[in-house]
């Protein structure tokens, strides 16, 4: 498994994720209907749509959790359609789940060390974690304010703390692009500002491109550079937050007008 890339062409290098015509069916239901989208380097892109619009399914197709029935998916200039999920993740595509998932029985620090899986190879795993990994883990722990809890079993922490840990884990994997499924979902309103800051800093300082699903409209309008709207599996709109807010089709989809 190699993730080394040929020297990218100038134009393509800007695009981190590109989907062409991606379609996913569950029996007779077309959950994702030939969706084209792309996320460029350095962007924060929002993916919105009413319940059942196919957002999470599209996510699952991109990450390889579900095989797409049709279409192509590219990460940088490599086609990743049909790759197994772990390989796509190892190639630099990070993911945070809608429901926070950490390794509950492992300590907070162990969670981070175990998350450094970018470009991993089987034999490399028989060595001890190197200094760089340990330092990076400590750095990220300090960043999300969990350094006092480094040796605590992750499952013991509160939900909010686990969310922060999961965020640090995603960064630990050193992704080029991070897919976040409802980062603000279920979060205490007082934490939302903090989360916005974290995401922005990740985007600018860590140079991570971000694609996020969000139901909290204030949140997504505030943070996203660009937004895609889905309804019934189809892409119905694309544009800046301002454009999306005034888009007739988006309003129709949300208000249930047909």
């Amino acid at each position: 498994m190699t993730t080394q890339q040929a020297p990218p062409e100038k134009t393509d290098a800007e695009t981190v994720i590109r989907t062409e015509n991606v379609t996913k069916r569950f029996g007779g239901l077309v959950a994702v209907d030939s969706v084209d989208m792309h996320v460029d380097h350095g962007e924060i892109v929002g993916l919105i749509g009413p319940n059942g619009a196919g957002k999470s399914t599209l996510f699952n197709c991109i990450t390889g959790t579900l095989p797409a029935d049709e279409g192509h998916i590219h990460l940088r200039d490599e086609e990743i359609t049909g790759w197994p999920e772990h390989r796509i993740a190892g190639a630099g595509l990070g993911r945070m789940f809608q429901q926070t998932r950490v390794y509950r029985e492992m300590s907070v620090r162990e969670n981070l060390i175990a998350s450094a899986q970018r470009n991993n190879r089987f034999l490399a795993q028989f060595r001890r974690p190197d200094e760089a990994t340990l330092d990076r883990a400590d750095e990220l722990l300090a960043y999300v304010d969990l350094d006092g809890l480094a040796d605590v079993r992750a499952g013991r922490m509160s939900f909010g703390q686990q969310k922060l840990l999961e965020f640090a884990m995603a960064l630990m994997a050193d992704p080029e692009i991070l897919l976040m499924d409802e980062p603000a979902g279920g979060i205490n309103p007082s934490m939302i500002e903090q989360l916005l800051d974290y995401i922005r800093e990740t985007n600018t300082e860590e140079d991570v491109t971000i694609l996020l699903i969000e139901h909290n409209m204030d949140f997504v309008m505030e943070i996203a550079d660009r937004i895609y709207a889905l309804a019934h599996g189809e892409r119905i709109a694309e544009g800046t937050p301002e454009e999306i807010q005034s888009d007739e089709r988006v309003l129709d989809a949300y208000l249930g007008r047909e």
């Binding site: 990450t63 959790t65 197994p84 999920e85 772990h86 390989r87 993740a89 190892g90 993911r95 789940f97 998932r101 950490v102 390794y103 509950r104 029985e105 492992m106 162990e110 060390i113 175990a114 998350s115 899986q117 970018r118 991993n120 089987f122 490399a124 795993q125 028989f126 060595r127 001890r128 974690p129 884990m169 994997a173």
Partner: peptide
């Protein structure tokens, strides 16, 4: 082994195999 990255990987499989796969581990 348990002190090496291998041990960490085994524990991630125990705690949440789906998450481990999503984090890039060929479980």
């Amino acid at each position: 082994l348990l002190g090496s990255r291998f041990g960490y990987v085994l524990n991630t499989i125990r705690d949440d195999e789906g998450k481990a796969i999503a984090m890039g581990i060929n479980t």
